[in-house]
Design a protein around this nucleic acid. Sequence first.
DNA 1: AAAAAAT
Length: 628
Amino acid sequence: MTRNDMFTESTRKQTRPSRPRYLPPHLRHQNANAVFTDADTPELTRPRYNRFSLPQTALNSGGRGRGRGPSFTNRQKPNLDDEKFDELEVIDDTAEGTNETNFGAYEDIPVQASGENIPPPVQTFAEIDLGHVLKQNIKRCKFLKPTPIQRHAIPIVIAGRDLMACAQTGSGKTAAFCFPIICGVLKDRLLLSIPGGSQVACPLALILAPTRELSCQIHEEAKKFAYRTGVKIVVAYGGTPISQQFRNIEKGVDILVATPGRLVDMIERARVSLRMIKYLALDEADRMLDMGFEPQIRKIVEKMDMPPPGTRQTMLFSATFPDEIQKLASDFLSDYVFLAVGRVGSSTDLIVQRVEIVQDMDKRNHLLNLLHAQKYNGSRSKHPLTLVFVETKRGADELEHWLSRNGFPAIAIHGGKVQMERELALRSFKSGATPILVATDVASRGLDIPHVAHVINFDLPKNIDDYVHRIGRTGRAGNCGLATAFFSDKNLPLAKSLAELMRESNQEVPSWLNQYAENSSFSGGGWAKRVGGKFGGYDFRKGFPSGNENNYHSSTYNDTHPVPATGDYYAAASANAQTFLGSAGIYADPCTTSANADYLVGRNENLDGAGPREYAYSHGQVVASGWE
DNA sequence: AAAAAAT
């Protein structure tokens, strides 16, 4: 089946080229700090291309294959005179396996930068002093022009600055941090005498990722970028024997790519030391700093032997950067630049988002209908790759079996499977052998799976940021994709933020969803309020983009005790009170009480029928909720 | 309440 068949008539309507050029709200009256958009790009170098004509073009391109853009491409033909290189699998996150990618879709994307003395962006790779070998590799990787994140981030990192960047995985961000790291490692190795033959490995750079599969993916890419530089890159993650990974490390390691648990293990066994770290990169940083991960990351970054901020370079990347995560992250950074790149292939026009009301008991049948429609809608050879997200591991297994029993070859991936099964599932999906992958959030972030045509949120996530990451698995590298969500009663808390997100990305919002959103007292998906509009985030050092006078962010963000002595607070003395407030980006001291409460944590109320929860209020509005 | 990440 072609992409063409997957889109409904209403979809076509939305993607008319006549739509006005979208400008993110906070760029409309822009003056503060540096803002670069393509308006800064000289007219001659700008492509004759309008981002908003892309979906239309792509949709009508059925005869020419899947959603490709117009005739131009930023890709060269592969350089075939280098056989060994070509043996390496090319899976950089800006590629889609084909040699043609809609890089034109990147050109029109605004980039916002804030911070002190921001190094200016470049327009070409030639302007950056990366050295001869790296330039060769850039050519081999068929990168002709840097993507927006690369144009901005690479000069910042080369200049020695710390960086917090909001950018989608499909935007070329892996290369954005790998090239300057490899370049820096090459220079540092000349200056430093690395002890040889030592039992303990001392990498110069550390790249951390939240899942094993993602660390593998980054490793594969980084190896390609470092080809023939002599820079040694090793990956370390759990679920697989540690002995082989030790052997890899013993051969020397300049750049270590790792998941947190296995890294801590190796450090505690004194096989790895972080004392030589000059570069630290956290991929999917918002996940790395969420409640479950933060202590481990803090341990690695602050309590082992890693040099402190200011003596190393730290880079944080994520598609979304909630305010409270930025606060945590600023502990790791020194005088950093904040970059926000407008989303590509995530919640932009390239992904058509649909929401349907489906109650839990009807979900299976509804899914089957969708899959049937997909199957008989012109598909002759292959079923399009469909990624189905569910809430639980058990739910994933059950749905896998149920789909298989009903004639749809499906395979599940979740953290309850052993690593071999996980990798098998991913391979089987990628190859098309099992064109339906049922996944938990293990697959929601960072993974680059080419040609995912359809993401189905069988169970919607609690958090709008997770939704953004999940649908970002389709519409990669400038191609278009479809995302369908099953919205049930349980998802009421998400109504408002989902409607907002869809509106921002020029999607048709069903009237019932707007109705739910209006009636909802929830300010932002239950856990955390999203700010930043079209961007994945907004530099929290500037405060809220829209005038919320009642916030404590801009003035106190780096204060270890940010609660003002005379603040009007009330926090219930429940164990989770602080957590809830923290999740909403609000700091509260549970000992501080006041009759004039700005923030109040109520216990065990059942506001939406989804079960009793705790709620945090500000002036009568729910600002956070969660289970006790 | 769930998921991920070490054994």
